[in-house]
Structures are given as C-alpha cells and as structure tokens.
C-alpha cells in the first residue's frame, strides 16, 4: 500500500510538469491551429537561462530564493522575447496553415537545438537545489524540493484554468479556439488574442522548464523527452482542449510511474504509445476533442 501511495505521489509530481507543458501546446493549437514542435526548445531555453543566470548571480546573491527569483524572471523574459520574435516573424505569416507552420516549427527545432548546443555547449549545467532534505508526510518520504515544485505547478495550473474560465480574456480565447470567424464577428480582436495566447504558452513552457531545472540534468536536449510526452498527452486528451491536456498528462504520468516501477522505464514508453493507438481507435479525436 505504501508503495502505491509513493508511486501515486511520483505520478502527481511528474504530471505537474507535463500539465504545464501540454497546456501550452493545447493553447497554441487552440488559438492558432498550429502544432508547435519548437515548444520543447522554449522549455529547454528557460532552464538554460535560469542555470546561467543563477551561476552569474551566485557570488552576490548566493543560492537563495532571491537568486532563484531573479534568474526565474530572466528566464521568463528571455523566453517571452524569443516567443514574440517567432510569432511576429513566423507563425503570424502562416496563420492557420497547419502544414506550413508545422514545417516552420520543425525547422525552428533544428535551428534552436543547434544554436543552443553551440552557445551553451553539450555539458550538463546543474542548478543548485533550492531546498535540501526530506519531509515525512502521510507516511511518505518526500523531498522538499519536489514538494515545492508540485505545489507551485498546481497553483499555476489553477491560476491558468481560472483565467481561461472566468476572465474576459479567457472567454475570448476560448471563443477563438472554438470558431475564430464567429469570434471575430462578435468583435473579438483575433490577432491580439492569438498573440497573447502564444506568449502565454511560451511563458508556461519556460516556467515548466525552470521548475524542473533543479531536479533534472539541464542540457540543450532537455526538452525532447517532454515534447513527445506532451504531444501524446494532448492527442489523448483532444487537441485544443484544456481539460484534455490535464487529463492526458495525468494518464501519461500514471502509466510512466506505475509501469516504470513494476516493469521498466522503456516498457512504460512503449505502453504509453500502445495506449495512444487504442484511444485513437476508440475516440479518433481524443477524449475531450471537439474540433
């Protein structure tokens, strides 16, 4: 029983990052009808900038909360700037051209990965842990670091969901995702909403990357594994669906931690793939897809 709880907690903690990641993917798909492959690169870029800034700040600020906060803001700003450039000069020109913009994002993957390898090098850049030690909770041993990560991710997800559900902006964004022409007829500024949606997704990717940085090996290829999982989560949940992204991420994380523990991690990856095939056979648009 103890084991099951421990695995459940692990799944919850992995899924927190997957949710942030796939929310970004599904947001971009919703507003732009674009499959953005370069999302994983923004995730990596956030983590890399964080680790670089932390290193630079270490002499004056140490490794405390202040350094983490400043570095986090730097990472966020850097990713937003890159996102803005990609949108203005790239995706905006290929509005709603699924194949074209997908090819563009695939090109961006190669370009960014190559550039990051050149600039940052292939070596692992460790980010110091913010908190040390473990806490005993409900009979489980949980590292403080991962607990903070989980709490932060849950709060952020809740904030995003509230934003999308109850604010004017969120309603406009969902309207655009359902039918952008009808939304424009209602006086919603489609272009502006699309830009904000895209930037929000970039910020989510950067945040997810920076949250995972202290517990992962930060290299220029960090995002690749998350990209596959994130896309599978979105496909299973239904592209463009917010609930779907959350449900899909939870499913993937559960499979990964349970199958990974009882069998082995690469069997878990294969199992995830089999599940996707089965889901697509039964529900070709994913569980919550409607487009």
């Amino acid at each position: 029983m103890q084991e099951v709880f421990q695995l459940l907690f692990t799944a919850l903690q992995i899924s927190a990052v997957y949710i942030l990641f796939s929310l970004g993917l599904t947001l971009i798909f919703g507003v732009l009808k674009v499959v953005n492959f370069a999302h994983g690169q923004l995730f990596t870029f956030g983590a890399l900038v964080l680790s670089l800034t932390m290193g630079a700040l270490a002499p004056s600020l140490g490794h405390g909360w202040a350094a983490y906060l400043v570095a986090g803001l730097a990472g966020l700003a850097a990713c937003l700037a890159v996102g803005l450039v990609i949108y203005q000069f790239g995706f905006k020109r290929l509005e709603r051209d699924m194949t074209g913009s997908f090819i563009l994002s695939a090109g961006l993957v190669l370009l960014f990965e190559g550039l990051m390898l050149e600039v940052f090098g292939g070596a692992v850049r460790p980010v110091p842990a913010l908190l040390e030690g473990n806490v005993q909770m409900l009979g489980l041993m949980v590292s403080r670091q991962r607990l903070v990560l989980l709490v932060f991710a849950v709060l952020l997800t809740a904030a995003i969901l509230t934003l999308l559900r109850y604010t004017r902006f969120g309603k406009a964004l969902r309207a655009v995702a359902i039918d952008y022409e009808a939304a424009m007829l209602q006086g919603i500024a489609y272009r502006r909403i699309a830009l904000y949606g895209f930037l929000m997704a970039c910020a989510l990717a950067a945040t997810a990357g920076m949250l995972i940085a202290p517990v992962a090996a930060v290299t220029p290829t960090l995002g690749d594994a998350y990209l596959v999982k994130g896309f599978i989560a979105v496909v299973v949940g239904g592209m463009g669906s917010i609930v779907g992204a959350v449900a899909g991420s939870l499913l993937i994380a559960l499979l990964e931690s349970f199958v990974g523990f009882y069998f082995d991690p690469s069997i878990a990856n294969l199992a995830i793939f089999v599940i996707v095939m089965v889901v697509l056979l039964v529900k070709p648009k994913g569980f919550f897809g409607n487009d």
Binding site: V35, V228, V235, N269, F273, M277, L280, L281, P284
Partner: peptide, 26 residues
Amino acid sequence: ITLKVKGPYFLLIGFAFTEALRIFYT
C-alpha cells in the same frame, strides 16, 4: 489504424511511432 484520423493527429501519431520504435530497438 491511424489513417482514420487526419491532420495534426496523424502527424503526431507518426512522430510517437518513430520514437516508440527507436526505444524498441534499444
């Protein structure tokens, strides 16, 4: 199995299949 779905779904399944096979080889 997969050609029942179209566009982004088909594309992403192909992507996942490629990665799954790569893991299978290892």
